[in-house]
Structure formats: C-alpha cells, structure tokens
C-alpha cells in the first residue's frame, strides 16, 4: 500500500510495507464483509407491507453462533497482525545491528544539525563535518544515528526510509537505518515543535561509494581548515 506512493529507500522499508499489506488484506476482508452484509440486511429486511418483524433474542446457542464464529476468526487474524507487528518492531526499534558508520542528529527549534564522521571515520574528531538541514550518507551502509533535541520535542522522519523517531530533550536515542536507494529525499519534523514546525524540512542525499568518498574528502579538509583557524565556531 505504501510502496505505491512512496519508494522503499531503506533495508527495513520492505518489512514495514509487507506488514502494512498484510494488515490491509486481513482488515480489508473483514471490512468489506461487514459492509456488504450490513447493506444487504438493510435492503433485504426493509419495511414491506404485511411482513412482521422477527423476534430473535440472540441468547440461544444457535443464534449466538452467528456472532461467536466471526468473533473467534477476528481473534485469529489479530494474532497474525500481532506477531507481524512485534516482529517488525523488534527489528527496527529494539535490535541494533553492528554499525558501519555513525551520524549525530541534533534537533532544535526549527532546524536540523547533522554531524558526520570525517575522513578518519571517527566521530568527535576535528575533521567531523557539521551540516544544517542537509544529511549526506552512503548507500548500502548501516548507520547508527544518535538523536537528541536541544529544546522541545521534535521528530526525525524520513518517509522514504520509513524512519521516524521522536527526539526528546534530555534523552539521547539511538537507532539505525541502512539506505538502499540513492538520490535526495525529504526529512520532515513529525512532532509539532512551535511556530516554525513547517520550516524544519531537510533533505538527505544518499550517494554511492565514490561520490560519498569525494564529498567526505572535500568537506572534511574544509572542517579541518576551519578547526585550525582559532576564531572558527564549530563544536
């Protein structure tokens, strides 16, 4: 259902789309069944002259069967949805596969700040690349993101990656993503964070290995140079 509108751009996007499609089929079946039976009953038992209503208390076993059978079937369907949901949830939010790279995401009132590992591949060194509202990552690399907020609750969301995590001030939340699609995609803030909530759009550039390496090389030399000059801002 989702992949028809939004491309699946990360490793677990497929899992979420599959789960949503499963729910769509189960829930769609029951929905259509109920609506059809509902409208058929209205038509079939509309008021006709000389035809009295029937007296069905619904307490006898034979009558209650009409309720308990669908009731049990719905219970069984719910178990499928339950297992699927917890399976996907565990993969995304509880499991943390080993990271190949790391990025820090700092949200504040109305802008995203991203800190990429510099050429040395180490976070927290002088050559880290800090960018505003522009995140650049390498395709098919598993990233750990460390998400935090400086003021109110924000929400880092990349629809193409099916990624969404609230940034709670006072907490450092870790999660992971692995982009599988190159290109530039939207970052949205998914939690109301004040007047500029609509301005907090950002873009994520997913580059292949070569472009990414050249981007990192070019930017980390700049941040090294800026770190060397004393008056530079930075971390």
């Amino acid at each position: 259902m989702i992949e028809s509108l939004v491309p699946a751009g990360s490793s677990y996007a497929g899992e979420i789309d599959l789960l949503v499609n499963m729910i769509l089929w189960i829930v769609g079946f029951w929905f259509v069944l109920c609506e059809v039976v509902f409208f058929w009953l209205i038509f079939r038992f509309r008021k006709k002259e000389g035809v009295p209503g029937q007296y069905i208390s619904g307490e006898e076993k034979s009558q209650k069967r009409w309720i308990t059978i669908p009731h049990v079937l719905v219970l069984v369907c719910d178990i499928f949805i339950l297992v699927g949901a917890i399976w996907v949830w565990y993969d995304i939010k509880q499991d943390l596969p080993p990271a190949q790279a790391e990025v820090r995401i700092i949200s504040q009132q109305w802008a995203w700040t991203f800190v990429h590992e510099g050429a040395d591949g180490e976070m927290g060194t002088a050559d880290d690349i800090t960018t505003i509202n522009e995140l650049t990552v390498q395709v098919d690399t598993l990233y750990h993101y460390k998400l935090e907020s400086l003021d109110v609750i924000h929400d880092f969301s990349v629809p193409v990656w099916r990624l969404k995590q609230d940034a709670i001030p006072g907490r450092l939340i870790t999660g992971w993503f692995e982009p599988t699609l190159t290109g530039s995609f939207d970052i949205q803030c998914a939690e109301l964070c004040g007047v500029g909530h609509a301005l907090m759009g950002g873009t994520v550039h997913v580059k292949n290995a070569a472009d990414y390496a050249s981007w990192v090389a070019e930017n980390s030399t700049m941040s090294l140079a800026s770190a060397a000059t004393p008056h530079a801002g930075g971390e």
């Binding site: 939010k93 509880q94 943390l96 709670i168 006072g170 907490r171 450092l172 939340i173 870790t174 999660g175």
Partner: peptide
C-alpha cells in the same frame, strides 16, 4: 533503557 539514555 533499550536504545535510549538520559545523559544528564
């Protein structure tokens, strides 16, 4: 907790 920490 799982995947989150309160640094302060």
């Amino acid at each position: 907790g799982t995947q989150w920490v309160k640094p302060s």
